[in-house]
Design a protein around this nucleic acid. Structure first.
Lengths: 352, 352
DNA sequence: CTGTTAGCGCTTTCAG
DNA sequence: CTGAAAGCGCTAACAG
């Protein structure tokens, strides 16, 4: 391998100084360079396949043109959580938007001995997009870096952070209300373990709101917890039946979990929606690929990604604090059954 | 924001020179530094929250500790192809392995006016993992950068590139043979448009091999093409039926397509496996989340990712050329039905 | 065992 | 309109 061509080489070859070369190639507006010189320099750079090194530029500009994205990891293996298709779709939108603006994407999980603020500083990230909920200490560390951060799907009230989210509480309300409007009164709530500032907590509040509005008391026995994964919710199915609370419906706070539950239920002879109705959340493509197709709360994941990306970039370039809330609506499909009045008292037939 | 602390600050604060500081912090083995000095320096660095900047290191070492991954993009929107869960799982494994070795992941698609070799040089990537098939001109450009490249799922015979793959031809053979062994003789082949060096081409060869072995002639009318996406294969369903070739089975070269086809068929009243049997390829988690669960050719996607990652890292650090072929086997599930002898002549009942 | 110093490739005053 | 030179943060000879 021959040595890589530097700006010096271009300058020498073009017969001008490095300054001139730099001016031409970085397109400085106030550089009074003759058209002819500029042409020669550009041509020479092209001919030598000159590509400026970001590392050198970064040292000077204090700008790396790099955006970091933090995606939740699976607890067990600390692999990135791409098992939930939500993240792939989100990332795809972020990458596209970022790239259109001349940035690149650094993607990294964090291990026990490597905190992200170090990675951020080491790589001199211009901006960071954080997906999901993290301990306050983690976010405080991020603040000390001074790097703009966009929080996605986290309820943290701190002026430092930009946010993009949906109204999860309202979403939870809509989902639960939809079940109630379809005649259900015994409604299970299935979610990830509730954490402060987390989306599931908010969806739970919405669940409570709808119950309260309908005059239905909250029954702690109808609350279930599992990981946000297909397998975990699949395995939850027998427990729901075993507890025998007679739910006729369940609000499951992520489609991937809803699908796991539906299939888990199916595997023990319980049919959705015939025996129990299920409504999900997210509206990932998966929701229409299965049987029954999942009735769910729709959010625009791609839009969430592109919005987060736009906001970091704006922030990097000095933009103001932004907090965006994206819309939400119910998509009716086949996993919820209308319960007729006479069935109300019966409860889940399997348990009778 | 106060200015970021540099190695100079640490040196001054610790009362030693920058050299000493550098030696201590970058853990040079041959540095004869007194234990006491080392302790003080480390402590000071800690106290000042010193984090070395990679950009400066990169300039010196010519090593960025960055690995680039190229993921196929959707033709239409040039978003990363995360709609196929294959890529998420793959990426997840790469990221994890890379990170364990002190590298980070740069992920970027490429647009029309931004060729990847420029990105690679600009970011001074240490290594590159390329997923899928690209024009030779693209690969030739990569070669000129001198950066180690691992090709995943591409059949390019060039000593420059490391490769990790599976025996796609054998996989295609296994899949087709499985259908034949189950009594099928009219077998459709559904794949992405065949490209030289591509995995689908190889799988097609395997399809031919099995047909030939069984003395079944190749019928061009039974060859179908669509995008590697759920929607695209969903829409293919009516065409397969309309052509009226009487296939009793289909080998579909990706699970995501197989699922789309199954559901597309279902939507027009054709049942899998009752009316037509389908075998997929990949064994993504999706294959067990649907009904019927998809009989498919299993490959270990996570292993593929971690292997690719290991190979780039080895290559970066001067390792030899490697070509790894991962194993493959059939997973029997519910999308293939055994065809009884008397049904053989009948063909697809729908078309009769 | 530790300090001085010369760059790595690039941008940017400041002089011509 | 163009060039010389300083310096971003860090490492690695080379001296002491």
């Amino acid at each position: 391998m021959r040595k890589r061509v530097s700006i010096k080489d271009v300058a020498r070859e073009a017969g001008v100084s490095v300054t001139t070369t730099s001016y031409v190639l970085s397109g400085k507006k106030d550089a009074r360079i003759s058209a002819e010189t500029a042409r020669i320099v550009k041509e020479t750079a092209e001919r030598l396949h000159y590509v400026p090194r970001m590392s050198a530029r970064t040292m000077i500009n204090q700008k790396s043109k790099l955006i970091g994205v933090i995606i939740p990891q699976t607890g067990s293996s600390s692999h990135l959580m791409f098992s939930n298709p939500f993240y792939g779709e989100f990332l795809s939108a972020v990458e596209y938007t970022i790239r259109q603006n001349g940035y690149h994407l650094l993607i990294s999980g964090t291990g026990p001995n490597q905190d992200y603020s170090s990675i951020a500083q080491m790589r001199e990230l211009d901006g960071i997009i954080i997906l999901g909920t993290y301990p306050c200490s983690f976010l405080d560390e991020m603040k000390t870096t001074g790097i703009p951060v966009v929080l996605v799907d986290a309820y943290v009230d701190d002026h430092y952070f930009h946010t993009v989210s949906i109204n999860d509480r309202h979403g939870g309300y809509l989902a639960t209300k939809y079940l109630i409007d379809n005649g259900h009164t015994r409604i299970a709530f299935v979610s990830e373990a509730l954490r402060d500032y987390g989306v599931h907590m908010q969806r739970f509040r919405g669940y409570q709101d709808a119950l309260k509005e309908a005059g239905i008391g909250l029954d702690e026995k109808c609350l279930y917890t599992c990981d946000v994964s297909y397998d975990s919710s699949y395995e939850l199915a027998p427990e729901i039946i075993a507890r025998g609370n007679g739910e006729t419906a369940a609000f499951v706070t992520a489609d991937i979990m809803a699908l796991g539950l539906i299939n888990g239920l199916k595997s023990i002879g319980v049919s959705v929606p015939d025996d129990i109705s299920i409504i999900g959340f997210d509206d990932v493509p998966l929701a229409t690929m299965c049987l029954p197709q999942i009735t769910t709360v729709h959010q625009d994941i791609t839009k969430k990604g592109s919005t987060a990306a736009e906001i970091v970039i704006e922030a990097v370039e000095g933009g103001p604090k932004r907090d965006v809330i994206l819309p939400l609506y119910i998509v009716e499909r086949d996993s919820v059954r209308r319960l007729e009045p006479q069935e109300l008292a019966k409860g889940l037939s399997i348990c009778s």
